[in-house]
Simulated assay, not measured.
Amino acid sequence: MSSVNLVNLTKYFGDKKILDNINLQVNDGEIISLLGLSGCGKSTTLKLIAGLLKPDSGDILFNGESALDIPTEKRDAVIVFQDYLLFPHMNVYENIEFGMKMRKVKKSIRQKRVLELLELVRLEEYKNSYPSELSGGQRQRVAIARALAVNPRILLLDEPFSNLDINLRGEMRDFVLSIQKKTGITTILVTHDKEEALMMSDKVAVMVGGQIKQFDTPNNLYERPNSKEVANIFGERNYIRGTLQNGLFKSELINFKSNIKEDLGSVEVMISKEDLELKPVDSDEGVEGKILKKRYAGEKTYYNIKIKDSILKATCDNNLYNENDLIKVSFSPKNEVYFR
């Protein structure tokens, strides 16, 4: 397997800078995600690692050695694209075998490897089927098996679940994770789905405008983002302007004891939607507000609440209140984050 180190990586398409001085360390055997909106440079980064594109400056290191002069076919970094790109005229067995055949691997070794991979991806009974006869999830498994057949050091996944329906997407995420854990292959996943990145990754690199804004564990990224820009990638948050002094946050809306004892003066506190608790209007606790908007989503209900001149957002496990209801809102920030 292999570690991957991107050093001051920059890429232009014409006059447009797509990647701006990217630095990233992926350890051997890790699965990490590149997360961001379309056009932020995620897929370009993947193609640079694979050797499909060349950087304008910077370096790509595999196990500490530059890979820039290694041709694509010899880098041992294989991409699985969102469209899978299976050969329609080849059956499952032949698709998986193809890369080894091109590398002139002995037939007996190819046969053994294909059968191993068919078992790994649970497609033994489909070895003679053609891509058109398979479901989306089955085609994806074939594409992964074909990538693994050549024993790559690095597996690159470019939005691999985006063409699947929501139920199959969850199933395939679990499947790919199980394959990655079994093989121990260093894996880099490109996605715009924050839930996918958080659930699947050892670490996540949040990309905005060709830059990595934060590279951290899923837990730290969600609970301790280093900027509002990163925080908002993971969904809407509440921001309240106030002051933090002597371990107490004070504002026109709320006051609470902070976990931060440092005097920061004027700050904005970030409070997650889940940290707002809605109570009956006659409750002794909380600040009075009015529900402006309600969206019921089964396990969760989403509320927009007007408190004085501010509109805050809450996510609740219950479905007790309706639009125009007066309620009380109490704040219980578990991991409040402050921005100046």
Rank of each mutant, 00 (worst) to 15 (best):
P55T: 00
K106A: 14
L164A: 08
E277Q: 15
S33F: 02
Y303C: 02
I179G: 03
V281Y: 06
E94S: 08
T186H: 09
A50V: 08
I166V: 14
G58A: 14
D83V: 00
L253A: 01
N238M: 03
Q111I: 08
K106G: 12
V78K: 15
P225R: 06
T301A: 10
P160K: 14
S330W: 11
F175C: 14
N259S: 11
Q211I: 09
K306T: 04
T10D: 02
E159F: 05
N220W: 14
P160C: 03
R173G: 13
S201E: 10
G247P: 12
H192G: 11
D28N: 10
Y303W: 09
R75K: 12
E125G: 15
E229A: 13
Y239Q: 12
N226S: 09
L117C: 04
K107N: 01
K313G: 09
Q111C: 04
F62D: 07
N255M: 02
F339Q: 00
A145I: 06
K47H: 14
A67E: 05
N238H: 05
P131F: 00
E229T: 14
Y338M: 13
Q245R: 02
K194P: 10
N63L: 01
I271M: 00
S266N: 15
L19C: 02
L276G: 02
N238T: 08
L177C: 15
S57F: 11
H192I: 03
Y321D: 01
G210S: 01
R224C: 03
L244D: 10
I31K: 15
R153N: 05
E323N: 14
E277N: 13
L35R: 03
S266H: 14
V329A: 14
